[in-house]
């Protein structure tokens, strides 16, 4: 029973369809400790579906999913998840501290009030995201970036071994988003991060690898898109479209390599 620890996330040949409509096909991905993987791709390309499969919220029709070497549903409590913030109502009457305390959901307590130890851990999580002065404030009194940090604190409160984030910067302005990725990159030392992002240029400086999802998955073990990803993302047409030259140049300037990046390493 010796041997290496299993990879944090391991998808092999995963396929998923909603009502017969394929969303993901033959998707493989391996993610280890200390990694910060960004998943990019067009809307409707299957990014969120991929995250939900990793979380065990959706079960793929084909292929296998392992998180820490186990089926995801068995290890839910070791995963910290921050859904897209737009899914929560913004004028909800709740304090920042109470949001973080929701992170203890499913840990077996059924009490009306949080215990002292839970409050202490929630305050520690808020300190980690730099919100310790804001615990008693109403969530919607915070800025978009601060609200996002509160949701990260909720994901952190149970000391997860993997962080799964869905569009964490969707409601933050570009400058704030840049700072946010800086902040995330510090967290990846404690727990590897799998995040969906549409802001590649911002994420690129901090991530360790990139996955491009549009029904299939292309993987690059470096923080930049391959030419293949760009062509799938934007479509490299033949001949005269002026955007193509621009895209090729962009790929080169971002350091895209000519021909790697199929499947998992």
């Amino acid at each position: 029973m010796v041997g290496e620890a299993p990879p944090v996330v391991e998808l092999s040949h995963v396929g998923f369809a909603y009502d017969g409509e394929p969303v993901l096909e033959d998707v493989s991905l391996r993610m280890g400790k200390g990694e910060f993987v960004a998943v990019i791709g067009p809307n409707g390309g299957g990014k969120t579906t991929l995250l939900k499969i990793v979380l065990g919220l959706l079960t793929p029709q084909t292929g296998t999913v392992k998180v820490f070497g186990r089926p995801p549903a068995e290890v839910r409590r070791r995963i910290g998840y921050a859904p897209q913030h737009s899914e929560g109502p913004s004028d909800f009457p709740v304090s920042v501290l109470d949001v973080v305390l929701m992170g203890f959901l499913g840990t077996g307590r059924a009490r009306f009030r949080a215990g002292r130890d839970e409050v202490e851990r929630a305050m520690a999580a808020l300190r980690r995201v730099g919100l310790d002065g804001q615990a008693k404030r109403r969530l919607n009194a915070l800025s978009g970036g601060q609200q996002q940090r509160a949701l990260i604190a909720r994901a952190l409160v149970c000391d997860p071994e993997l962080l799964v984030l869905d569009e964490p910067t969707a409601s933050i302005d570009p400058y704030g988003a840049f700072c946010f990725y800086e902040f995330l990159s510090e967290l990846k030392e404690h727990a590897p991060i799998l995040t969906v992002s549409h802001e590649l240029s911002l994420a690129a400086s901090r991530i360790t690898s990139l996955a491009f999802v549009n029904r299939t998955l292309l993987y690059n073990a470096e923080p930049r898109p391959t030419e293949e990803m760009l062509s799938l993302a934007y479509g490299l047409h033949d001949a005269s479209c002026p955007v193509d030259g621009f895209l090729r140049a962009m790929g080169r300037s971002l350091g895209a390599e000519r021909r790697d990046g199929e499947g998992a390493p």
Binding site: L55, G56, L57, R76, R77, I79, Y81, A82, P83, E87, G88, P89, F92, V94, V99, M102, G103, L105, G106, R154
Partner: peptide
């Protein structure tokens, strides 16, 4: 507050 998160826990 957030059904998706509750489900994930």
């Amino acid at each position: 507050f957030d059904r998706e998160f509750a489900r994930s826990r």
